[in-house]
Design a protein around this nucleic acid. Structure first.
Lengths: 341, 341
DNA sequence: TTTTGTTGTTCATACGTATGCACAACTATT
DNA sequence: AATAGTTGTGCATACGTATGAACAACAAAA
């Protein structure tokens, strides 16, 4: 029944050439006469020949697998981003090997396991691997790209959203809309992205406020989830200084907040409070929320991450790169676009 | 700088044993004296030795990679399900290699590419591969598990949600709540799951209606997306026979519908219309929707799929299995749980 | 003591591909 | 016509692991 898979040697015999010739036929850069190549292809087709990646990897000392390391995929934004990475990796003729490292204890151990696969590279988007795991990869000759990670690294390439810029964009929008009593909300557990966004938000205000006409406070909620936003609403809406503008470092938190607000205050009251989220998750454009948000251009970030990896493979010794992709404000109904001159 | 990775031969020299002994040391079933094994481990540790999966695969003729074939990851439910598969595969000591086949044209070609990797198995969850691609895998000795797919196959194992049962559960719930004018909504493009759910819904009603007290119609919307639900609301709510119960074959469609309904009719009017979704996506429990829905137990389905694959690897020649995982009704606010005796 | 069995190790080989080197058959140059 | 260069192919080998067979050392049984 399941007969042995055909090898290049089998193809060689059928095509009446040597095994090397078969191998070279599949390499576009080899000099092979067109006649021979076609004969080889025909024989390969006939036998259902498929190259053996394991053997190929052994020789080339590099597979076409790319490790995508991630965590917290229950967060739809990450999930969406992972999807884009997968597509992008595929488009480059590479194969994504995904690794979920949500289980904190085993991260390092598991990551070490990846080294066994002679990966073409690793793209780390979340999870909190130890400092030296990146170095372990690099020591084994596997390039690493860090995406939206705080780790400073002398050896890995880095692609980030311009998180501080994203915060600044939100702050600027509130100023343009004449909001004066602002709040910025982020999760208690400091994630690199959120901290930077909040920092960018506050810094922008600090450097653009002449007198004391604008106030801004930072509020911490439990996690970066919908539920946290739902819970924090009470605290924000019942404080003495009820804000007229709230910036959430993650869209989910904003959505939770909005749902809670509907039960805590009237729609009219809510209308006077501007809300800006961050990321632009799919949910943000649903009519139930229609959330004005600072978009994280995840497609571009995914593209940049993969391109960075390819570049590194091409020029292994060039200096590590670091790029920040700019964010972009998407006006929807939770903060109307001001009429400008 | 990047010196050659350590091999089992290097470890052997350092530990003062042969290469075979090193290899056997890492196989728990080999008889190796404890002393030797520890010496080998120490040497391996010292050299940062990592097994070379490519070489291992070549010998064993089987990698520990599992192909996860999917499409339409922009759908959060699929995305969530993929996540669960990834975790499940990892937990079994295997590695997930993900493949997005959204691009219709290249499915077969790309899938053929997977054969090159000596996969331990392939789990196909979506996408519409041609009939014979499954057979191609099997011919190459790669077991296939189909999840929620319509393809009937004599060779692949099959794991499905009990889709007809899910539809029946929704129908039963409406009957218990005394709803009499029902509509079932599914996407125009016939997907296996949706068609079966609608069928189960209508069949249940047909076989439980004595007189003509209950009416049920099928309505088709464009796709399975939020937007489609948003668009179809008008048609449903402005028809002469305005329904008092609507079953959506996918939660997204229901969510879109609910958002549109808020603008088309009053909250009071809406209260008299029961709505049931299907899948139980994360969104369904958000307060903005709080959708009563027939839950697809995706964690269990993912577990079943991976277990099925493991089983097949253990008993390669056993007859193909086929299982249907039962659905479960989750009451939330769009259809209140009736007070039963 | 001889035989039989058990345990722990080494030897040798296979897996399927890529590639440096050699070489033959031409073509272009002198 | 002789030389140099180009093109297409084959030979041989390396990659790093797993594993059957052989074997040595030792213990247990006869």
């Amino acid at each position: 029944m399941t007969k042995r898979n055909a090898t290049s040697a089998d193809v060689a015999i059928l095509a009446g050439v040597s095994q090397s010739t078969v191998s070279r036929s599949f390499d576009p850069d080899s000099r092979i006469s067109e006649a021979t190549r076609q004969r080889v292809f025909a024989a390969a087709e006939k036998l259902g020949y498929q190259i053996n990646k394991a053997a190929q990897t052994m020789i080339k000392k590099r597979s076409d697998l790319v490790g995508l390391v991630t965590a917290g995929l229950e967060d739809p934004f990450r999930s969406e981003f992972l999807h884009k990475l997968i597509v992008e990796v595929q488009n480059c003729g590479l194969r994504p090997m995904v690794m979920d490292v949500s289980n904190q204890q085993t991260i390092d151990e598991e990551l070490h396991g990846l080294i066994q696969y002679q990966l073409s590279g690793v793209i780390i988007t979340s999870g909190t691997p130890s400092e030296n795991i990146g170095k372990a990869f690099i020591r084994h000759g596997i390039p690493v790209v860090l995406v939206n990670r705080t780790e400073h690294s002398d050896e890995a390439d880095i692609v980030n959203l311009d998180n501080e810029g994203a915060g600044a964009i939100a702050a600027e929008a509130f100023m343009k809309s004449g909001k004066t009593n602002l709040v910025v909300v982020r999760a208690k557990k400091p994630s690199f992205s959120s901290v930077m966004r909040a920092k960018g938000f506050l810094n922008y205000l600090a450097s653009h406020i002449n007198n004391d006409e604008i106030q801004a406070t930072e509020v911490l909620c439990e996690t970066g989830s919908y539920d946290s936003g739902y819970q924090i609403a009470d605290k924000i809406l019942t404080s003495q200084h009820k804000p007229d503008g709230v910036f959430f470092c993650m869209d989910h938190i904003a959505c939770g907040f909005l749902d809670a607000a509907k039960q805590l205050i009237t729609a009219k009251e809510m209308q006077s409070i501007g809300v800006i989220g961050c990321d632009d998750i799919a949910l943000a454009r649903f009519k139930a929320y229609d959330l004005t948000t600072v978009k994280q251009p995840s497609t571009e970030i995914a593209k940049a991450a993969v391109q960075t990896l390819l570049n590194r493979l091409k020029y292994p010794t060039s200096a590590p790169s670091k790029q920040a992709i700019p964010a972009e404000l998407i006006y929807r109904s939770t903060l109307a676009k001001p009429i400008t001159d």
